[in-house]
Lab assay of single mutants.
Amino acid sequence: RGFLEKAAVKKMAKAIMADPNKADEVYKKWADKGYTLTQMSNFLKSKTAGKYDRVYNGYVIHLD
């Protein structure tokens, strides 16, 4: 289950990176699912340092 969630989160993160207008909708879905910042950090780990920082930081702001 965790692997599928991670894959889904990364897919949506890539969608945000391609079209930032989708961010609020995606952040709301993640918040509704109760994803914590720790979970998001783990889901968005990448071999490329900083690749998903913008998405993660946007989610931090959304939760605030």
Rank of each mutant, 00 (worst) to 15 (best):
Y52Q: 02
D53Y: 05
L37E: 06
D24H: 10
K33D: 07
I61P: 01
S41A: 15
G34N: 07
A31N: 06
Q39T: 06
Y56T: 04
M17V: 06
E5S: 05
N21R: 13
F43S: 02
N21W: 10
V26L: 04
K51Y: 13
G2V: 13
P20E: 07
K28V: 06
M17G: 02
K28F: 04
M40I: 15
G34E: 03
K6P: 06
G34V: 02
K45S: 14
N21P: 05
W30H: 00
D19M: 05
K6F: 08
K47F: 08
T48F: 08
S46T: 08
A8S: 10
A18H: 10
M12K: 04
V60A: 14
A49G: 09
K10D: 03
V26N: 04
M40G: 01
A23L: 03
T38F: 10
A8M: 14
L44G: 01
T38N: 11
W30R: 00
D32S: 09
L63V: 05
L63D: 02
D53N: 06
N57G: 07
K47I: 06
A23E: 05
G2C: 15
S46L: 05
S41D: 09
R1A: 13
D64Q: 15
I16K: 00
A49F: 10
A8G: 09
A13M: 03
Y59Q: 00
A13S: 03
E5V: 10
M40E: 00
A7Q: 13
A23Q: 05
K33Y: 11
A49P: 15
K14A: 12
A15P: 01
R54L: 13
D24P: 14
T48K: 11
K22E: 07
Y27Q: 00
K47Q: 09
D32C: 15
M40F: 01
R1P: 14
K14S: 09
T48P: 15
A31W: 05
D32G: 08
N42P: 01
I61K: 15
G50M: 04
Y56A: 01
K14E: 14
A31Q: 09
M12G: 08
D24M: 10
G58F: 03
K33F: 09
A49V: 12
T38K: 10
T38I: 11
I16Q: 00
V60Q: 10
Y56I: 14
W30L: 02
K11Y: 07
K22Y: 08
I16C: 05
P20G: 07
Q39I: 08
K45D: 10
Y59I: 03
E5Q: 08
T36M: 02
K11N: 11
F3V: 10
I16M: 05
A7Y: 12
V60E: 09
Y52H: 02
Y59H: 01
Y35M: 05
S46F: 05
F3N: 12
K47D: 15
F3P: 09
A8Q: 10
R1W: 05
L63P: 00
K10Y: 04
L44M: 02
A49R: 12
K10C: 10
K45F: 08
N42H: 13
D24E: 11
V55E: 02
K51D: 05
K29C: 15
K11H: 09
I16L: 07
A18R: 12
Y52S: 02
W30V: 00
E5A: 08
D24F: 11
A7G: 07
G58M: 04
M17N: 05
S41E: 12
Y27A: 00
A49T: 10
K51C: 08
R54D: 15
R54T: 15
S41P: 02
K29N: 12
N42W: 15
L44K: 00
K14L: 10
Q39H: 07
L4W: 14
A31G: 04
N21D: 11
A13L: 03
A31L: 05
P20S: 05
W30E: 00
F3S: 14
M12W: 06
A31S: 10
G50S: 06
Y59S: 01
S41H: 13
L4I: 11
A8V: 11
H62A: 07
K45I: 09
G58D: 05
R54W: 14
Y27W: 02
G50V: 03
P20A: 08
G2P: 10
A15E: 14
Y52L: 03
N42D: 15
Y27M: 02
I61C: 14
A13Q: 01
K28P: 04
N42T: 08
A49N: 11
L44R: 00
Y52C: 03
M17L: 14
V26E: 02
K6C: 14
L4C: 15
I61R: 15
K22A: 08
D64A: 15
M12T: 04
L4K: 14
K14D: 15
A8H: 12
R54G: 13
M40T: 01
E25W: 10
M40R: 00
T48R: 11
G58I: 03
L63A: 03
G50T: 06
K22C: 15
T36R: 02
L37W: 03
G58Q: 04
R1L: 12
A13T: 02
K47G: 14
A23I: 04
D24A: 13
N21K: 12
M40V: 11
I61F: 08
V26C: 07
A7D: 09
A8D: 07
K45T: 12
A13E: 00
L44A: 00
A31H: 13
G2H: 15
Y35S: 00
M17I: 11
K6S: 11
Q39M: 13
A49C: 13
K47Y: 05
S46N: 06
S46A: 07
F43H: 04
